[in-house]
Amino acid sequence: MTLPAPTRTGQQAQTGNQYDDGPFTFRPATKDKAKARVAIQGVSGSGKTWTGLSVAHGLSEGQRFAVIDTERGAASLYVGINGIQFDVLQMHRFDPRDLVKALAAAAQAGYGTVFIDSLSHFWKGADGTLEQVEKAKSKYGGNSFAGWKDGTPMQNDMIDALLTYPGHIVVTMRSHTEWVLQENDRGRKEPVAMGMRAEQRKGVEYEFGVVAAMNIDNQLTVLKSRCPSLHKRVIQEPNGAADIAKPLLDWLNDGAESVDTSAWIDSASDESATAAQLLDLYREVESHGALATPFLHPGTGQPTNLGDFIKERGTALKAASAA
């Protein structure tokens, strides 16, 4: 049996839920200007906070950026060094839903770069995903596995908010520390701390464009990079702005102009918008993978995402016209 050649089609007739049952439409591929998604993992004392700040400073091109701090003010110790200036939000409870709220507030404030130090707390810190699963299991007869019915959506929503934030994102992650015996320059065995795996949900590294690991000697190794010039680089005492942010920005900016998400938000909020226009807008945002873009609801001031807001308005307008 020979399949027909694929074709690109316009919007098809909708059945059932208009928003959830959209058409599968292929469009010409383009390399749009993208935003950086950088993760730096390492053991305590490896320099990941300072390196992350330097990367964020470089990505923001000298502008103030936002820091979401879970490390009891560690980032603020470096303010002013090499001209680095930022605004900070201290967090002491680490419900992943609160990170979504913080990102929505940062987007509303217009920060072009957000640095999260560290993402590990939202996995295994107070009220993090693991604690949310532990709390939820009581609803399922103490079954921890069933508790993931609550924990997984929270974790996924947090990752979606990170990936769709309308600016650059830099995160640090703690590494599981394992001590191994290595031979020193005197020929003697000595214990050395090795960072083995990031303290976050397994596979989280796949979500970032650049993933680097730092060791106790302040050496950075790029484990993964979609940016060719950073691929497999090993940098001793890295200057995050020059060694990572600059080549990354050069590569990211080598493309078509990126979509301004604020224009989508304005269109979604337009009082003259019709239900049909909002459905078309939803499809456009969906085609760019930006439905989960976090922002503050213009009516309630509460965190929401672009897809839910468009769907809410479009559904309400359709129901009103049918009444």
Rank of each mutant, 00 (worst) to 15 (best):
E312M: 15
G80V: 05
G289N: 14
D254H: 15
G209M: 03
D160L: 02
S60C: 11
T304F: 09
M173Y: 07
N156K: 07
E131V: 04
L317G: 12
H176F: 05
S225M: 03
Q132F: 00
G167Q: 01
T177Q: 12
D21W: 04
A75Y: 11
G255F: 04
V204G: 01
Q302Y: 14
P4R: 11
E207G: 00
A241N: 09
Q155D: 02
G240E: 12
W264R: 03
R201G: 04
A74R: 06
L162I: 03
W264C: 10
G58T: 13
R97K: 09
A322K: 15
E178V: 02
S229D: 14
S269A: 15
T9F: 06
L181K: 06
W123L: 06
Q11M: 15
R37W: 04
E131L: 00
G299A: 13
A29G: 08
I244V: 10
G187R: 02
N218S: 09
Y140S: 10
K33W: 14
K189Y: 05
D69T: 13
Q219R: 07
K224N: 03
S60W: 00
T15E: 12
A66I: 03
F145V: 12
V171C: 02
D117I: 14
M194R: 06
W123N: 14
L162H: 01
T300R: 08
T2Y: 06
G52V: 04
I40N: 05
P4V: 13
A39M: 15
M173N: 12
I159T: 02
A126S: 02
T152H: 04
S262W: 10
P28R: 04
W148M: 07
I159E: 03
Y78E: 05
A136H: 13
G112Y: 14
I235W: 06
F94D: 02
V192T: 10
